[in-house]
Amino acid sequence: MAITLSKGQKVDLTKTNPGLVRGVIGLGWDTNKYSGGQGFDLDASAFLVDASNRCQNDHDFIFYNNLEHPSGALVHTGDNRTGEGDGDDEQVVVDFSKIPAYVDRIGITVTIHDADARSQNFGQVSNAFVRLKDEATGEELIRFDLGEDFSIETAVVFCELYKHGNDWKFNAIGSGFSGGLGALCRNYGLEV
C-alpha cells in the first residue's frame, strides 16, 4: 500500500524499500474546462543537482528534448502533448544504482508549454499528482496529490528525491513558480 504524503512531508525511499533499484516517477493532471481556446501541453522535467542545488551541465536537465541522462540514471519516457486519459500523463524512470556521485538531489517539475502566450496557468490545472512505483513489482510506494493551491504559476516543483547518507528520500514539495521553464532552469543554475 502506497504512502500518501502531504505538502512538505519527507519519507525514506531506498532504506524502507531495500530491493528498490529502478523507480518509475509518474506525473498526472487534468485541465479545467476553460482553456481560453488553446490546448494545454504540460511537460515533466527532472533536474539533477549537486550539493549547491545547481546542475553541473545541460545534460543534468532531463526533458522532452533530452530524454536520457548520459549515466542512464534518469530516462524520460516521452512527451504527452494532451494529458488525456487516466493514470500517468508523463513518466521518468530513475535507476538509483546509476545516479552519479555528485548528484545530491533530483527535482521533479512540471511546466505549461507556452503558458504566457496561451494565457494558461496552474490555476486551470486540477487533480495533479506525482507517484513513485517500483519498476520491478509495479507496486506504488509513494503518492503526493498536489491539491488546488495554485493560481498564476506556470511551473511547479512537484517533488525532490534527495540523498541522505547512502540512501534516497522523497520530499513532497508542491512549490509553484512564475516564469515557466526558464525560471526553473535559472533556479537550478542553468542559462536559458
Results as ranks from 00 to 15, higher is better:
residue 184 L to E: 04
residue 20 L to D: 05
residue 191 E to P: 00
residue 88 D to I: 10
residue 187 N to G: 02
residue 120 Q to R: 07
residue 151 S to A: 15
residue 78 G to T: 02
residue 91 Q to I: 14
residue 93 V to I: 15
residue 4 T to C: 03
residue 35 S to C: 10
residue 157 V to S: 01
residue 67 L to P: 03
residue 192 V to Q: 14
residue 46 A to R: 04
residue 161 L to N: 03
residue 11 V to M: 06
residue 8 G to V: 01
residue 77 T to H: 08
residue 28 G to K: 02
residue 177 F to L: 14
residue 188 Y to S: 05
residue 129 F to Y: 15
residue 108 I to S: 05
residue 149 D to Y: 06
residue 188 Y to T: 00
residue 36 G to N: 12
residue 133 K to G: 06
residue 87 G to P: 07
residue 67 L to K: 09
residue 100 P to D: 06
residue 109 T to E: 05
residue 15 K to L: 09
residue 32 N to M: 14
residue 181 L to F: 15
residue 146 L to P: 07
residue 53 N to G: 13
residue 114 D to A: 12
residue 162 Y to E: 14
residue 89 D to M: 05
residue 131 R to L: 10
residue 130 V to E: 03
residue 173 I to M: 12
residue 117 A to I: 15
residue 93 V to G: 06
residue 15 K to S: 07
residue 48 L to G: 02
residue 125 V to K: 05
residue 36 G to P: 09
residue 58 D to N: 11
residue 47 F to R: 02
residue 178 S to M: 09
residue 4 T to N: 03
residue 8 G to L: 09
residue 127 N to T: 12
residue 134 D to N: 15
residue 41 D to P: 06
residue 98 K to M: 13
residue 17 N to A: 09
residue 34 Y to W: 00
residue 15 K to R: 07
residue 127 N to E: 12
residue 162 Y to R: 13
residue 37 G to Y: 10
residue 34 Y to M: 01
residue 21 V to H: 07
residue 68 E to F: 00
residue 172 A to V: 04
residue 50 D to N: 15
residue 3 I to M: 05
residue 51 A to G: 03
residue 45 S to W: 01
residue 183 A to I: 11
residue 15 K to G: 03
residue 184 L to D: 04
residue 102 Y to K: 11
residue 145 D to L: 04
residue 21 V to R: 13
residue 188 Y to A: 00
residue 96 F to I: 03
residue 187 N to L: 12
residue 12 D to Q: 13
residue 59 H to F: 15
residue 108 I to Y: 09
residue 1 M to Q: 12
residue 103 V to E: 08
residue 141 L to N: 05
residue 125 V to T: 09
residue 181 L to C: 11
residue 61 F to Q: 09
residue 21 V to M: 09
residue 17 N to H: 12
residue 3 I to Q: 07
residue 143 R to T: 15
residue 159 C to Q: 02
residue 32 N to F: 07
residue 56 Q to F: 03
residue 118 R to L: 09
residue 37 G to K: 08
residue 18 P to D: 01
residue 151 S to Y: 00
residue 91 Q to G: 01
residue 10 K to I: 13
residue 46 A to P: 08
residue 184 L to H: 01
residue 85 G to H: 08
residue 160 E to K: 15
residue 178 S to I: 15
residue 149 D to V: 07
residue 14 T to S: 12
residue 125 V to Q: 08
residue 87 G to E: 07
residue 120 Q to T: 11
residue 148 E to G: 11
residue 141 L to G: 06
residue 84 E to P: 00
residue 157 V to P: 02
residue 117 A to D: 14
residue 166 N to F: 00
residue 34 Y to K: 10
residue 173 I to K: 05
residue 133 K to I: 00
residue 53 N to M: 13
residue 17 N to Y: 11
residue 103 V to T: 07
residue 128 A to Q: 08
residue 23 G to M: 02
residue 62 I to C: 10
residue 67 L to N: 08
residue 118 R to Q: 11
residue 70 P to L: 05
residue 183 A to L: 10
residue 90 E to H: 04
residue 139 E to G: 02
residue 163 K to D: 04
residue 11 V to K: 01
residue 167 D to C: 12
residue 58 D to E: 14
residue 8 G to Q: 08
residue 1 M to C: 03
residue 124 Q to I: 04
residue 25 I to D: 00
